[in-house]
Design a protein around this nucleic acid. Structure first.
Length: 755
DNA sequence: TCGAGAATTGTTTTT
DNA sequence: CAATTCTCGA
């Protein structure tokens, strides 16, 4: 078959070995996705395996989506029956159908990190734990680690060695009880409960073993112990397990990834067929050599040597700057100069920590360069989005106490903490959910005025419930945002940040409209045991709870991509800049005296280098401000690990003075919009008015007030205009209010009246 | 009940 | 530095 001819011998070997355990050690850029997808095609057309029996598991929705697309193209008919999904969504689907077997309700909600933290705060309060002695985050991290190792609360307690361990065990116990009470699972539970289910219900396990006779796992080096158990259980019956990974790209140890899963695969699955893919099709020779030189400093890895038929290409460019700001300016400036015809899509700027993105972003904004920021605050974690989603969760399912509490007084309804606590106690005493307590409480007449307010709230929710049955999702969300008064409250704030929030809600509505139109993810189109008539609202909430930030990356737009090295795994770009190559930053200070940690950092560096196809630039700054403190760093040891012959000497030595050009572009800190919600400039300019016309603000030709005029604002009262800046989209007006201080806002949004 | 200002705290990396 | 949490006054 013609499609197979373009594959090299090793790739063919990997593809043709379909029975029994197989380990594919796929170096960076060696075409592993191609092997996986072709292997699926071969199973179907060459081995007559029914698509229904094939499963491919990935870590991110993005990877799953790409795989699905390629399988669809390759296989055609029946491709939709292949199960392509992430670990988490696989587990959710299994649990939705069978979790009642282990005593949960199938309408469980999924807690994200914020929800977890909120719950843990409650636990701390119950146990009278002072947050100065222990941190919620820290305890949650320990619980997560325990869950990854499938250690329950009892066993966790047994392993306790001191007072703090005991306390953490108490927390674990209470935390689990809290989840249970709210009919909720956290991310780790999705995996753990699925394994528990399989162990408790052999018939269910058997059902899925029969279904998934051929299993493939991508990025296997990132699996943790639960995931290993899950895969092992599923594959036990037929034994057709194919895992693909690269131990050199294992960068998620902090998340429980167990590198032993890949290093000892052959012990766990005796007789495993091992294939090494070492020919790289991505990077130019010098870049690949640099990657090899860096990674060879690691011990405890499967020896391999990537090679390429590509030419050597350019040397690796190394640039040193005086300060982090000059670094950002230098990098973005160079990209601006190099990008002909606005081909920004070719460029990625990578960094170790999210905090580093700020300076880069500023540079893009001031130079008017389109960019895309991946990471940072996930869209679905933004406050306004979580608020609206909490409404939806309340409408979909009144048992989600956390969601109800969140919106009870948002927007302000005069229902304060005291009243909420009262309802909480009532709920606990009566064994009711928080929401049910709210519906019953006013009738008792013990609340006085607050009773009316609560009644109005529950009536509103009931009204939304009615509407949710007839309205499409997008309309429903718009109605909720509008009629709850949420938008009004935002609008009244008038500030730039509020504008961004409104836009985010608009974006959510747009997403819901797409969802209305296309239905849920295509994999849902075939029967997997779930009732086909699950309300769109439920399916939407579910999909939304499992999206990662990388999933939202748009690789078709002409924008520079800014993201962390972690987020870059699995991607490739023509030209890559890795910034902040400094000891203490990358490798991070934590890893400087821990050899194991240092190796993980080095793998991260390897991942970063191998993202580049044609051109790689490594930059560092002598000094940068971290945590409000100026730090001086040495060059990264990883820079030294790349031999001189591979590095561009010109940039290597010259400690650059800021050129005139750079200075003229300099950032005049004073006039910068300061907004925590950080609008993405590129999106602001790019987004059309297709959705939610009612939110749209049109830039006026001119304003009827000017600097020095007295104006009136709906909420802040009267004040004096101090400054008007002509922004690209709207005038930004700075006003000193008599009683509310100085505020900066968009003119069209704030609706100021001249007095 | 709620806002504003003060104090405090924190940095990897994320499904 | 910036985001979150705390405290106090009305």
């Amino acid at each position: 078959m013609a499609v197979y001819d373009q594959m090299n011998e090793r790739q063919k070997e990997a593809m043709l070995c379909t029975e029994g355990p197989e380990l594919i050690l796929a170096g960076a850029g060696s075409g592993k996705t191609r092997v996986l997808t072709h292997r699926i095609a071969y199973l179907i057309s060459g081995k007559n395996v029914r698509p229904w029996h094939i499963m491919a598991i990935t870590f991110t929705n993005k990877a799953a989506g790409e795989m699905r697309e390629r399988v669809d193209r390759l296989v055609g008919e029946g491709a939709e029956q292949v199960w392509v999904a992430t670990f988490h969504s696989t587990c959710v689907r299994i649990l939705r159908r069978f979790i009642d077997r282990i005593g949960y309700d199938s309408s469980f909600t999924i807690y994200d990190t914020d929800d977890q933290k909120t719950l843990m705060k409650q636990v701390f309060k119950e146990l009278n734990i002072d947050t100065r002695t222990m941190k919620e985050r820290n305890v949650l991290a320990r619980i997560s680690a325990a869950k990854n190792e499938m250690t329950g609360p009892e066993e966790f307690r047994k392993q306790a060695e001191n007072y703090y361990d005991e306390k953490a065990a108490d927390c674990y116990e209470r935390y689990q009880a809290g989840l249970r009470k709210n009919n909720a699972l956290d991310f780790d539970d999705l995996l753990v409960k699925t394994v528990q289910l399989f162990r408790a219900a052999p018939d269910v396990l058997d059902y899925y073993q029969e279904r998934f006779r051929y299993i493939m796992v991508d990025e296997y080096q990132d699996t943790n112990t639960v995931q290993f158990c899950l895969v092992e259980l599923l594959a036990k019956k037929y034994g057709n397990l194919c895992v693909v990974g690269d131990d050199d790209q294992s960068i998620y140890k902090f998340r429980g990834a167990n590198i032993r899963n890949i290093l000892s695969f052959e012990e766990a699955f005796p007789g495993a067929h091992v294939v090494r893919l070492e020919q790289n099709y991505r990077s130019a020779g010098n870049i690949l050599d640099a990657a090899n030189e860096v990674i060879r400093n690691n011990r405890g890895r499967k020896e391999k040597h990537l090679w390429t038929e590509e030419e050597k290409g350019e040397l690796v460019h190394v640039r040193r700057f005086e300060t982090a700001r000059e670094e950002a300016s230098g990098v973005i400036g160079e990209i601006a100069r190099r990008a002909r015809n606005g081909e920004y899509r070719k460029y990625a700027v990578l960094y170790r920590t999210n905090a580093q993105s700020r300076l880069l972003e500023e540079q893009c904004v001031t130079r008017g360069i389109p960019y895309q920021l991946v990471g940072g605050v996930n869209f679905y974690q933004r406050k306004e989005i979580k608020d609206i989603l909490a409404y939806l969760r309340t409408i979909a399912n009144g048992r989600d106490d956390m969601a109800v509490r969140r919106i009870l007084n948002v927007p302000k309804r005069g229902i304060g903490a005291a009243t909420a606590d009262r309802a909480g106690q009532f709920a606990a005493a009566q064994g009711l959910s928080f929401y049910d307590a709210l519906t019953k409480l006013p009738a008792l007449g013990t609340l006085g005025r607050a009773g009316d307010k609560i009644r109005r709230f529950t009536e509103m929710i009931e009204g939304f419930r009615e509407k949710s049955r007839e309205l499409p999702l997008g309309e429903l969300i718009r109605t909720v945002a509008d009629e709850s008064g949420y938008l009004d409250e935002l609008r009244e704030e008038g500030e730039i940040e509020a504008q961004t929030r409104t836009e985010n809600i608009q974006e959510l509505i747009a997403k819901a409209m797409t969802f209305d139109r296309d239905g849920a993810d295509p994999a849902d189109a075939f029967e997997d045991g779930l009732p086909a008539d699950r309300p769109a609202l439920d399916r939407f909430l579910e999909e939304v709870s499992l999206v990662a930030d990388i999933d939202r990356m748009d690789d078709s737009a002409e924008k520079i991509t800014l993201m962390t090295l972690h987020a870059a795994k699995g991607l490739e770009f023509e030209e890559v800049y890795i910034t902040g190559m400094e000891d203490g930053l990358f490798p991070g200070s934590r890893s400087l005296n821990d050899p194991e940690e240092l190796e993980e950092e080095r793998r991260l560096c390897y991942v970063g280098i191998t993202r580049a196809k044609k051109r790689l630039t490594l930059t560092c700054a002598k000094t940068r401000i971290t945590n409000g403190e100026q730090r001086w760093n040495q060059d990264s040891r990883f820079l030294e690990e790349i031999p001189e012959r591979l590095k561009d000497a010109a940039g290597g030595a010259a400690p650059s003075r800021p050129s005139a050009e750079l200075r003229s572009f300099g950032f005049s800190g004073a006039g910068t919009a300061k907004n925590t919600a950080r609008p993405k400039a590129s999106e602001i300019f790019g987004k059309a008015a297709a959705f939610g016309k009612q939110f749209q603000v049109v830039k006026a030709d001119r304003l009827d007030y000017t600097v020095g005029d007295r104006v009136k604002h709906a909420r802040f009262g009267e004040g004096v205009v101090e400054k008007i800046e002509d922004g690209a989209r709207d005038y930004e007006v700075t006003v000193r209010f008599d009683s509310h201080g100085v505020k900066k806002m968009f003119a069209g949004f704030a609706k100021l009246q001249k007095l």
